[in-house]
Design a protein around this nucleic acid. Structure first.
Lengths: 192, 192
DNA sequence: TGCAGAATGTGACCTATGTCACCTAGCTCC
DNA sequence: GGAGCTAGGTGACATAGGTCACATTCTGCA
């Protein structure tokens, strides 16, 4: 399936657009490809776009003063990513996004998204629901952080994204779980 | 200021509604008052409404199998709250909401919100932006959990909501920060 | 006005996880 | 096909924060 169909199918789940409306919407996206390791957004950048992933895997992460990395999100096909705090508020990026593998994405500028949301009610509807889902997922992860120890969070993650285990190096999984790579290694080594 | 004006002002920040449109929107809200300690949503409930707080303070929390409470959100005036996972997906409540003080709220049903979002584009626009903000705030808190120790999170919280310190018992602040009440007590006792 | 419960402080001790150091096994690139 | 890098495992030790026990206020209200 090509990118256009993938996006179309993705949106059809929550909004009804005619072919013409969708074509118009789609015409504002730009197709981009990135290599493994390539950086898409780095700290301090002006953030103008958000990305819809067609293939490959991205990560959104934060690096603190002690050079420790924390991963906010792995972005797999049909998921969206950006530094939304920077994108929505027109501030400089505080998180970075780069490619765990080669990746194809569709990008759309903040400006175009707002324009089309204004022009097509159904597009605004779609974006409202997309963010609703993200919000609920973020709250769920927050609860998991407060409520579960590292081992439980690890098992939760694998249950949610079985593909990650073979796709993503372990130290990145540790950075997502919020534990050190040593601790993660001990979690699945021990049969505790 | 009465509740209607408060809501009007709140919405005017992100959406433009005519007086008639706002009156129509407002006509779907129900005014409700609760006493300190009163439970608004409890685990297992069917969740049909969300709440806009006019006065007082609510908390949204989760109680785990060990009877330990984790607070997802304190809701102060002009903030919204509900169990959104349950509300959006029509599932049973997994989190509870109750009143830290006497409170006045406006409530609107999921059904009515969706109906009006469909009828009035600007209302949909408003709810999209509200959730955007919530999503960004949730991600920020997640990062803070991964990146900061309890003392830093405590200072962040006080900087963000100075009013909380005198309004909310310490053990609830501990439950929000994700530490035990003993640890919280030691944080601000020691001058570390 | 007096008492039962909440809220809070604090000491002693325990445990999960971080940190540091070092080792091994694959890759990748000239 | 060797040099050097990255991923990953593991032991020894440090530490933040949890748990338990108990003392001290505070507060609502009978």
């Amino acid at each position: 399936m090509d990118g256009k169909d993938l996006l179309r199918q993705h949106i059809a789940k929550t909004a009804s657009l005619t072919d013409d409306e969708f074509d118009y919407f789609f015409s504002h996206f730009k197709s981009e490809t990135f290599k493994k390791g390539q950086v898409i957004i780095s700290e301090g950048d002006v953030v103008e776009k958000e990305y819809f992933v067609l293939s490959g895997c991205l990560k959104a992460f934060f690096v603190n003063d002690n050079i420790k990395m924390h991963i906010l999100q792995f972005t797999m096909p049909t998921w969206w990513t950006s530094d939304y705090a920077a994108l929505y508020n027109n501030t400089k990026a505080t998180i970075c996004i780069d490619c765990i593998s080669d990746a194809e994405v569709l990008s759309i500028s903040n400006e175009d998204r707002e324009k089309i949301c204004n022009e097509l009610h159904q597009v605004e509807h779609f974006f409202r629901w997309r963010t609703n889902k993200g919000y609920v997922a973020a709250q769920k992860r927050l609860l998991s952080f407060m409520n579960n120890d590292a081992k439980t969070r690890y098992e939760e993650l694998l249950a949610l994204y079985p593909a990650l285990y073979n796709m993503v190096p372990k130290h990145l999984i540790a950075a997502y779980l919020g534990v050190s790579r040593e601790t993660l290694s001990r979690l699945y080594t021990s049969s505790k």
